[in-house]
Design a protein around this nucleic acid. Structure first.
Length: 805
RNA sequence: GCGGAUGUGGCGGAAUGGCAGACGCAGCAGACUCAAAAUCUGCCGAUGGCAACAUCGUGCGGGUUCAAGUCCCGCCAUCCGCACCA
C-alpha cells in the first residue's frame, strides 16, 4: 500500500522540480503557440477565485498545447497605470508608485500559486519607464501620422475622478470606474483618430474567431450607416443647413427640421418673437447632463421662427430646436419625416406638425395614423416624380440622385467617435509633447523618450481640468526641441488603456532597448493565438488593441493587423445569489485558504467543475470536497496498481480508448466542466474493474495520468514518477491518441419503447438486423408487447420503438 | 424600446432528435469504530402503492415527428449589452 495523497508534500516537491527543470523550453524547433491572459491591474484586495478561473482555463489550454509539442508563449504582466491603481493609492494615502509595487508583489505571489506555466522572464509592467517609453513612442508616431490631434470641445467629465473620459468609458451615463454621473466639460484635449480605422475595424471582425456577442458589440459600437447629406436653404437668407439622413427616399415627407441646441446656427435662426424662448431652451439644454436628457419621457423643443426650403419640392418647412438631436453625430441637424420615423412622429404629434405619408403600407395610405410606418418597403406616394417607385430600391438610389440634382451627396456615418486621450491625472504616461509659442505642438524626439513621470508630493487630481503635473514648474518648463526657445510640456497623461493596447507585443521581446519589438521576433512569435479574459472589455481594451495593432502594422512594426486570432470569454464567478464579489459586499472568496486546505490541484479542477467555462457561476466552497475526494481516489488507483504489472484486458483497453476520446474532444470544445466529470466517471469505472479483476494494467494508468496532467499537474507528475518515469509528463508530446475501432462495443444495451415511452431494455449485437431486434424486444416485453402494432422502428445502436393503436 | 443569452431535482449541473436528471454537493440508511472524523456500501424528481408497478415531470401555450429538454411558431421571467446615432 503506497502512501496516502498529501497535497502539501506533492505540490512542494514538484514546484521545486519545475523550477530546476522547466517544462516549456523553446528549442527553436517546436512550433509556437501564444496563449495569453488579459493582464490584471494590481488591485489592493488581491485575487479572488473568480480571477483564478480564467487563469486556470488558460493554463489548462497551454499545458494541453505543450503536450502536443508546442512551445507555448504564456506570459503575465501588470497593467499598473491608471485610475484603479491611483484611486486606491489616494484612498490609502500611499504614493501610487509604492502601493502599486506592493500590490504587484502580493498578486504575483497569488498567481504563482496557480502553478501555471507562466514565463516570468517575459514579465512586463506598464509603469516601467522601459515599457512606457514605447507607449509614448507609439503616440509620437501617431502624432506624426496625423492620428493624434488637439481639440477643444465639450467632453465627458467625471466629477469624482476629476478627469475627462472616453465615450467607451461612459456606461449608462456614468463613469465606468466609480459610477458617478458624468457631466460635460469644455476642455482642450488630445484625441486619437480611431475613426480613420472605422471601416477596417468593422470589416476585419469577419476574420476573427471571437464570440459572436463581442463581435456584435464592436460592430454596433462602430455603427456604420449609409445615407445622404441634403442641403436645405434657409428661407430669406443665404445660408443653408445640411442634414444627414439614412432615409433619403422619404424626402418628400419631410415636414419640418430639427437642430441640436448646440448647432452653430441655432441662435441666429431666432426671430424677435421667438428669441427669448430659443435662448432659454439653448441655455437649459447646456446645463443638463446626458443622463437627464435620456430620462426625458416626453420630447421637448422650441420653434425658431425660421423656415427652410425642401430642395426637392420647394415646400417651406419650419425649423425647430430639440435636444433629441445630437450635436456630435452627422451634421447636428435632421430633416423630420413624421410618417416614417418614430421620434419624428412623436415630436409632430406633440407640437401639432403636419404628417405626410410617402410610402404606401399594404398598398394604401393609412387613415388616422397612430404610429410611424418605419419599414422601407412599399410604393412611393405623395412624392412627385418618385411616385410609384419601390421604397427599398429608392432608398439605395436616392443618394446618387440627390448628388446629381446638386443639393446633397452620398454619405457614410459612424457612431464611433474619436478617442479622448487626455487624462487630468497623475498616475499615467506623460503625453510626450512640448508646447512652443512659435512651433506649436512639437513631439519629444524619439531618442529622448521616455518622458519620465516626475516624482511629486501631491498627486491628487485638482479638479480644475489641469493635471497635477501642471503644478511642477521645473518639469513643465523646458525648451522647444525644434527651435530651442522656452516652451512648456504637455501636462495631461494617457488613459489607463494606453499600455494595454499593445502590451501583448512586448512580452516576446521585453528587454529590447532599440525597438518596441524586433521584427524577427514579431514574425516568429506573434500574434496571439488564444486570448482569454472577461467580456467587460468588449468595446474598450479589445477595440483599442485592434486599432493600435492596425496602426503598428501600417508603419511596419508588425506584419499582421489583428492582435488576437481567437478570443475566449470566461464567465464571472459570483457570490451567493449571483452577487458580484466585492470587498464592500463582504463576499470575496480568496484562493489562499483553499489552496492550504485542499491543494492547488483540487482548486484548479473545482474552478472548472463549477460550470461551463463561458457561463457565470455562483461560488460554493462545499463542492470542492468532491473534487478533492476524486483526486484521492485517483491517486490510490494509480499508486496501488503502479507496480503490479497487471495484464491488460479487452474491457479495459476499450475503456481506455473511450476515455482518450471523451477527454480530448471535450477539451477541444472547451467543455472543461464535463472533462472533470468525465475523469470522475472513468476513475469510478476503473476502480470497480480493479476490484473485480484484481488490478489495472500500466498502459491504462499511464494514459489516465497523462490526460489528467493539464488539469492537476502536481499529482500527475508524482504519479507519473511512481509509474517509473524519470522525465516529466509534459515532455515528449505524450498526449495519447485513440483508435475508433478499439473503442467500439460489440454488444450494446438499447431501450425498447411503445409509442415513445420506455418499457424495457434489450442487449443486442451492434450489427443486429431489424428482425433480430424486434424478436429480442418481443422476448423482453413478453405479454406487454402490443397486439395491434402499426409500425416497428429500429435504429441500430439507439432505439426500438413499437407504434401501436 | 431594440438586440443577445439563460430557464432541467433541495443545490451546481449532464444529455450528436433516441432510456431526462450523468458527475458532484447536500441529505438519509448501513459497514468499520468504544466513539467521532475519514473511508467504503446503498438510497436519493413528484404523486399513488407494502411491493412489482403506474401516472406525471426539463418556464408557459401550441405545432412538427414513430420519438422533443433538444426542431418550428407564439408568450412569460431573469440576466447582460445598446439606448433618441435620424
Amino acid at each position: 500500500m503506497a502512501a496516502a495523497y498529501n497535497h502539501k508534500v506533492v505540490e512542494k516537491k514538484w514546484r521545486g522540480n519545475w523550477e530546476a527543470h522547466p517544462i516549456n523550453v523553446n528549442d527553436g524547433k517546436k512550433p509556437k503557440y501564444y496563449c495569453l491572459d488579459m493582464f490584471p491591474y494590481p488591485s489592493g484586495s488581491g485575487l479572488h477565485v473568480g480571477h483564478w478561473r480564467g487563469y486556470v482555463i488558460s493554463d489548462v489550454w497551454s499545458r494541453y498545447k505543450i503536450m502536443h509539442g508546442y512551445y507555448v508563449i504564456h506570459p503575465m504582466g501588470w497593467d499598473a497605470f491608471g485610475l484603479p491603481a491611483e484611486n486606491y493609492a489616494i484612498k490609502n494615502g500611499v504614493h501610487p508608485r509604492i502601493s502599486t509595487a506592493n500590490n504587484v508583489a502580493n498578486i504575483k505571489r497569488q498567481i504563482q500559486d496557480i502553478a501555471a506555466v507562466y514565463d516570468w522572464d517575459m514579465e512586463v509592467n506598464t509603469t516601467d519607464p522601459e515599457f512606457y517609453k514605447w507607449t509614448q513612442w507609439i503616440f509620437v508616431k501617431m502624432f506624426k501620422a496625423g492620428l493624434a490631434y488637439e481639440k477643444e470641445m465639450p467632453i465627458n467629465w467625471c466629477p469624482s475622478c476629476k478627469t475627462g473620459l472616453a465615450n467607451e468609458e461612459v456606461v449608462n451615463g456614468c463613469c465606468e470606474r466609480c459610477h458617478s454621473v458624468v457631466t460635460k466639460k469644455n476642455l482642450k484635449q488630445w484625441m486619437l483618430k480611431i475613426t480613420a480605422y472605422a471601416d477596417r475595424l468593422l470589416e476585419d471582425l469577419d476574420k476573427l474567431d471571437w464570440p459572436e456577442k463581442v463581435k456584435k458589440m464592436q460592430s454596433d459600437w462602430i455603427g456604420r450607416s449609409y445615407g445622404a447629406e441634403v442641403d436645405f436653404k434657409v428661407e430669406g437668407r443665404d445660408e443653408s443647413i445640411t442634414v444627414y439622413t439614412t432615409r433619403p427616399d422619404t424626402l418628400h415627407g419631410a415636414t419640418f427640421m430639427v437642430l441640436a441646441p448646440e448647432h452653430s446656427l441655432a441662435k441666429s435662426l431666432a426671430t424677435d418673437e421667438t428669441r427669448k424662448d430659443v435662448e432659454d431652451y439653448i441655455f437649459r439644454a447646456s446645463t443638463r447632463s446626458n443622463i437627464d436628457r435620456m430620462q426625458d419621457k416626453e420630447k421637448t423643443g422650441v420653434f425658431t421662427g425660421s423656415y427652410a426650403i425642401n430642395p426637392l419640392n420647394g415646400k417651406k418647412v419650419p425649423i425647430w430646436l430639440s435636444d433629441y438631436v445630437l450635436a456630435d453625430y452627422g451634421t447636428g441637424a435632421i430633416m423630420c419625416v413624421p410618417a416614417h420615423d418614430d421620434r419624428d412622429f412623436e415630436f409632430a404629434k406633440k407640437f401639432d406638425l403636419p404628417i405626410i405619408q410617402v410610402i404606401a403600407k399594404d398598398g394604401k395610405e393609412i387613415e388616422n395614423m397612430t404610429e410611424a410606418y418605419t419599414e422601407a418597403s412599399g410604393t412611393m406616394i405623395n412624392s412627385g416624380e418618385w411616385n410609384g417607385m419601390e421604397s427599398s430600391v429608392l432608398k439605395k438610389e436616392a443618394p446618387e440622385m440627390i448628388e446629381k440634382l446638386g443639393f446633397g451627396k452620398k454619405k457614410v456615418n459612424y457612431k464611433l467617435r474619436d478617442w479622448v486621450f487626455s487624462r487630468q491625472r497623475y498616475w499615467g504616461e506623460p503625453i510626450p509633447i512640448v508646447h512652443c509659442p512659435d512651433c506649436g505642438c512639437v513631439p519629444v524626439p524619439e531618442d529622448q523618450l521616455p518622458v519620465l513621470l516626475p516624482e511629486v508630493e501631491k498627486y491628487e487630481p485638482t479638479g480644475t481640468g489641469e493635471s497635477p503635473l501642471a503644478a511642477i514648474d521645473e518639469w513643465v518648463n523646458t525648451t522647444c526641441p525644434c527651435c530651442g526657445k522656452p516652451a512648456k510640456r504637455e501636462t495631461n497623461t494617457m488613459p489607463q488603456w494606453a499600455g494595454s493596447s499593445w502590451y501583448f507585443l512586448r512580452y516576446v521581446d521585453n528587454k529590447n532597448k532599440e525597438e518596441l519589438v524586433s521584427r524577427e521576433k514579431a514574425d516568429k512569435y506573434l500574434p496571439v493565438d488564444m486570448y482569454i479574459g472577461g467580456v467587460e472589455h468588449a468595446v474598450l481594451h479589445l477595440l483599442y488593441s485592434r486599432f493600435y495593432t492596425k496602426f503598428l502594422h501600417d508603419i511596419g512594426v508588425v506584419d499582421f493587423d489583428e492582435p488576437f486570432t481567437k478570443l475566449f470569454n470566461q464567465g464571472m464567478i459570483t457570490g451567493k445569489n449571483g452577487i458580484k464579489m466585492s470587498k464592500s459586499m463582504g463576499n470575496v472568496v480568496s484562493p489562499d485558504d483553499l489552496i492550504e486546505d485542499y491543494g492547488c490541484d483540487a482548486l484548479r479542477m473545482y474552478e472548472l467543475f463549477v460550470g461551463p467555462p463561458e457561463m457565470d457561476a455562483e461560488w460554493d466552497d462545499r463542492g470542492i470536497d468532491g473534487v478533492r475526494r476524486f483526486i484521492s481516489r485517483f491517486w490510490n488507483l494509480v499508486s496501488d496498481n503502479a507496480d503490479k504489472n497487471f495484464a491488460e484486458t479487452d474491457e479495459v483497453v476499450k475503456l481506455r480508448h473511450k476515455m482518450i476520446y471523451d477527454i480530448t474532444t471535450r477539451i477541444e470544445s472547451f467543455s472543461l466542466n464535463t472533462v472533470v466529470s468525465g475523469f470522475m466517471e472513468y476513475t469510478n469505472k476503473l476502480i470497480d474493474i480493479a476490484k473485480k479483476q484484481g488490478g489495472i494494467d500500466k498502459a491504462t494508468l499511464e494514459t489516465a495520468v497523462t490526460l489528467l496532467a493539464p488539469f492537476a499537474p502536481h499529482v500527475s507528475e508524482e504519479l507519473w514518477e511512481q509509474l517509473g518515469h524519470t522525465t516529466s509528463v509534459f515532455e515528449g508530446n505524450l498526449w495519447p491518441s485513440y483508435d475508433e475501432e478499439a473503442m467500439k462495443d460489440d454488444e450494446i444495451e438499447i431501450a425498447v419503447q411503445i409509442n415513445g415511452k420506455m418499457k424495457g431494455k434489450v442487449t443486442l449485437s451492434v450489427d443486429a438486423d431489424k428482425d433480430t431486434a424486434i424478436a429480442a424486444a418481443k422476448a423482453a416485453l413478453g405479454d406487454k408487447y402490443p397486439e395491434n402494432t402499426v409500425k416497428e422502428i429500429y435504429v441500430p445502436g439507439r432505439i426500438i420503438n413499437i407504434v401501436a393503436k
